[in-house]
Design a protein around this nucleic acid. Structure first.
Lengths: 210, 210
DNA sequence: AGTTCGCAGTAACATTGGTTACATTCGGCC
DNA sequence: GGCCGAATGTAACCAATGTTACTGCGAACT
């Protein structure tokens, strides 16, 4: 039994299921920035996230993106769950936000375990629930907040994910993820700096007190 | 066996499951406009929608609303599914868009059937999948479209749901559901009328060719 | 018929955010 | 040091949307 599996999912799954996962699952390391799933892809295995973070995007007609949410350790990809069963295409793009480690589980097991293990059902249901809640949060943010508030939330989340007070992004990259323009982001960041909430540097931003 | 159950869910569930649903489920009629679930409510039973339509809302800090999507016959409420298991509160508000008929199933059965019936698992997974896709569509609409396009989509959807070319809403009601102001909606509707796509009347709108 | 009230039309203005254009600065590289 | 390209700063302008304020209309009621 690989230790990471036990550490991350041991409290969720019974020993027998852990054994099965260990047997049929394959480990996979993904480097920061690597595209893990593209819109339109068919999905053939289900990822359990052991470490790192993955960002999930939606795309508009011009090919521009919008960040929906992050997946973290202990999470799984909700798209995968039903894409497997329903044979439908992915509606989203997944990119590694940091270096990440996954266990890939063959899709056939998903449905079998759902019949066999209560803990697996619980995990799957909770995954959906979490994803739905994240979508609600995303919708709240887009529909109810102005860009300056969205930016602050983004910076907070980004800092939390990277476990530090420094965000290594350019203004252009932030603009892509929030689906706006670089000029707008630069403008708002400068305001935050003037409010003494952050300090701006070339290629990175230091969070002070937001 | 009540006929509507068979008509709407007969192709999804095996006979034995249909029997169980019929035995433990209770029928419920809901009149148009009735609030069926409020944000913060705990959920104790799961609705299967037999006829009619239900609209699902999210609320901002000021108590203003945003329409997320509609549920129609054959659908179930995704919130319910995990609220039951996880004992969490509802994140959304549900209001009957039209008169509607439901079967209410006790929550305990949900998890039992998930272990017992493959068809039930399929139904639950597909429900989640559909809801997630509707959330994606909602996000696309809010994030990528301008208000005039959102309004057109709204009118189309509303006409589809009510199965007719007349929408019985005031401008104010439309504004609430799209989370904007009455003046903005009046302005855009007038434009659509000038384009000969709709005709405006007091308390209702006739769709011509949008 | 007159009153009332909710609904709709519209002008004028404010604000937010998107766009264009250009200047400046920083690092890396020769 | 000098050059170059990417990143950032900033002004000026524009389009979309939100806000305020007022008018007029129509249905229902008395």
């Amino acid at each position: 039994m690989i230790q990471e599996l036990k550490n991350n999912f041991g409290h969720l799954f019974e020993a027998e299921l852990l054994q099965e996962i260990n047997q049929v699952g394959t480990y996979k390391d993904v480097a920061e920035g690597v595209k893990m799933m593209e819109i339109g892809d068919y999905v053939r295995s289900m990822p359990l996230l052991i470490s790192g973070a993955i960002k999930i995007f939606r795309e508009d007609n011009n090919g521009d993106e919008l960040l929906l949410y992050f997946l973290e350790k202990g999470d799984t990809c909700a798209m995968t769950l039903t894409c497997c069963l329903g044979q439908t295409k992915s509606e989203i793009r997944a990119i590694a936000e940091t270096d990440a480690t996954l266990i890939m589980v063959p899709v056939e097991k998903m449905e079998i375990w759902a019949g066999k293990y209560k803990s697996w059902r619980k995990f799957v249901f909770e995954s959906y629930h979490n994803r739905l809640n994240e979508m609600f949060a995303t919708i709240d943010s887009i529909a109810f907040l102005k860009m300056d508030e969205r930016l602050v939330n983004y910076l907070k989340e980004k800092a939390r994910i990277s476990e530090g007070a420094i965000i290594y992004s350019t203004h252009q990259e932030i603009a892509y993820e929030l689906h706006t323009s670089r000029v707008v982001i630069s403008r708002l960041l400068k305001k935050l700096e003037n409010l003494n909430k952050i300090t701006l540097h070339r290629n990175h931003i230091v969070i002070k007190n937001i």
